[in-house]
Design a binder for these strands. Structure first.
Length: 100
DNA sequence: GTATTGACATCAG
DNA sequence: TCTGATGCCAATA
């Protein structure tokens, strides 16, 4: 599987995250490990940083439920409006976690 | 071919 | 909350 295809897989998976749910970078890496043979949360993060535009990136958080840097306030607002359970400034992963 | 880097994960101070 | 240390792995330089 080429890097471009891996990028496509990551993006399409992020697009499939339903409203009110989120996935961690590690969860995405795990979910795609099956078909990609790769398993690196860092790679997922890098991909989001480069090609994150066009997908609901705010539904992708780190394992603590923290929103990504740079657009924290916007992410928080979108998550809130989608009904994602928030605990202060971070997502309640125990209820918001989603897997395909 | 080697080194550096990074929107990560976890644990310990 | 925030560093630092460790482990991890592919992209970049």
């Amino acid at each position: 599987m080429t890097p471009q295809e891996y990028v496509e897989e990551v993006l399409s998976l992020v697009e499939r995250i339903p409203e009110g749910k989120v996935m961690s970078y590690g969860a995405i890496a795990d979910a795609l490990a099956e078909i990609s043979g790769r398993n690196s949360a860092r790679q997922v993060g890098s991909i989001m940083a480069r090609h994150g535009g066009g997908v609901p990136w705010h539904r992708v958080v780190n394992s603590s439920g923290r929103t990504p840097p740079g657009h924290e306030q916007e992410a928080r607002q979108r998550l809130l409006s989608e009904g994602v359970p928030l605990k202060g400034d971070h997502v309640d992963m125990t209820r918001a976690a989603w897997t395909p």
